[in-house]
Amino acid sequence: MKGIVFTEFLDMVEQEFGYETVDHIIEASKLESGGVYTSVGTYPFSEMLQLVSNLSEKIEVEIPSLLYAFGKYLFNTFLSSYPAFFNRCEDGFSFLDSIDSYIHIEVKKLYHDAELPAFQSTRLSESQMELIYRSSRKMSDFAEGLIDKSMSYYKHDYTLSKELLNPDGSEVKFLITLK
C-alpha cells in the first residue's frame, strides 16, 4: 500500500487522539517498517490492517467506523492535493464515474505499484447510480466515507445504501439516489 495512505492515517490519528495514540498503535504492532513511513514509499497492506485494529482496540471503536472516518478524512487530502480531479466534473455522479475511468488510472500512472480497487458504475436513471466496489483489500467502508464526502462536496441531497454482493466484503454494491 502506498505510503501516503499510512502517513495520512497516522496524521489523522495524531490529530484526533494525539501522538501518544500514534506511538501506541505503532509500538503495539509488529511492523516490518518499524512504523517509519514516507508518502513516496510503499509498504505491506498488512501493516495498515494492524494499525487499524490496534487503534480500534485502543479507542474502542469498530474497524468499519474507523475506515469510514478515514475515508472522509482522506477526501480532504485528495481535494487539496489534486483539485484538478474535482474541477473536471460538474456533479457527484460524473465524479464517481471518473474514479475508475480516470482518477485511479492517473494514480496508477503516478505510482505504478499502487493497488487500487475496481469500481463499476451504472446510471440507473437521472437520479440513481449504482457503484459496485471490488477489491481483495475489502475496504468498502473506506470507500463509503469517500463517496459520502464526494456527494456532499457537489452539494447533492441524496441517500446511500450498501449491499454485500460477496459476504467477505470483497464485492459491494452501493446505490446512490438523488432526492
Binding site: Y19, E20, V22, D23, I26, G35, V36, T38, V40, G41
Partner: peptide, 29 residues
C-alpha cells in the same frame, strides 16, 4: 503531556522517514 521516550521515538521515526524518502527520491532521480 507526552513522554520524552515517545518524543524521542517520534523524532527518530521522522528522521528515518526523511532519510528513507531522500534515498527513494535519489533513486527516483
Amino acid at each position: 503531556m507526552i513522554d520524552t521516550d515517545i518524543l524521542q521515538r517520534k523524532l527518530d521515526r521522522e528522521r528515518k522517514a526523511r532519510k528513507q524518502a531522500e534515498s527513494i527520491l535519489e533513486k527516483k532521480a
